[in-house]
C-alpha cells in the first residue's frame, strides 16, 4: 500500500539526513520526499511517500517517531486528505504540435509560464496520477525536461498537523 506520511521536524541541518539515513539503513523505500520550512521557522514540514505492507509502514512510522528531531507525524492516508504535486515540464513545440500542446495544457488546467519559438515551459499541479496522465498525453517525443516537486499533502477538514 502507498502511504503519505507528513512530518513536522526540527529545522536543523542534520534532520533531513536522519530521515534519509533511516530509510536507507532499514531498507524502506521512499517514492518521494519534500521538505521546506513552515510558518514557524524552527520547524520544517516533510512529506514522505512510501510503499509497504501494514507491518512495514507501522515500523516506519514508529522509527520516524523515535528520531529525536521528529516533533509530530501523521499518516495522511489513514483519513481523507488532499495531495498535490507540482511539475514543470519543458516541451518541444515544432510546427502543428504547438496548438495541440496548448490545448492539452488547457485541458489539464496547466499554465504556460515560458515560451520560445521552439518550446513551451508548462506548470501543472495535481495528483501524481494527473501529472502522469499529462506526460502520457504529450508523449515522450515532445518532452525536453521534467521536474516534479514530489507530493505534498494535507488532511481534509478540521484536522491539522501543528504543535
Amino acid at each position: 500500500m502507498r502511504h503519505i506520511i507528513s512530518i513536522l521536524i526540527e529545522n536543523e541541518s542534520g534532520a533531513l539526513s536522519r530521515v534519509a539515513g533511516l530509510f536507507s539503513a532499514r531498507g524502506y523505500n521512499i517514492e518521494s520526499l519534500t521538505v521546506a520550512p513552515t510558518e514557524d521557522p524552527s520547524l520544517s514540514r516533510m512529506t514522505l511517500v512510501t510503499r509497504g505492507s501494514d507491518e512495514i509502514v507501522e515500523q516506519i512510522t514508529k522509527q520516524l517517531n523515535k528520531l529525536v528531531d521528529v516533533v509530530k507525524l501523521i499518516d495522511l492516508t489513514e483519513g481523507p486528505h488532499i495531495e498535490r504535486e507540482m511539475m514543470l515540464i519543458k516541451l518541444r513545440t515544432a510546427g502543428d504540435a504547438r496548438e495541440e500542446l496548448k490545448r492539452l495544457v488547457d485541458i489539464f488546467r496547466g499554465h504556460i509560464i515560458d515560451v520560445t519559438t521552439g518550446t513551451y515551459t508548462v506548470e501543472l499541479t495535481g495528483t501524481g496520477d494527473k501529472l502522469d496522465a499529462f506526460i502520457q498525453a504529450v508523449g515522450s517525443a515532445a518532452i525536453l525536461e521534467t521536474v516534479r516537486s514530489g507530493v505534498s499533502g494535507i488532511a481534509r477538514g478540521e484536522k491539522s498537523l501543528h504543535l
Binding site: 507491518e55 507501522e58 515500523q59 514508529k62 522509527q63 517517531n65 523515535k66
Partner: peptide, 11 residues
C-alpha cells in the same frame, strides 16, 4: 518502553 520494539518481528 520503545514502541518500535513492539510487533517488530513477532506480532
Amino acid at each position: 518502553i520503545d514502541p518500535s520494539s513492539i510487533s517488530k518481528s513477532v506480532k
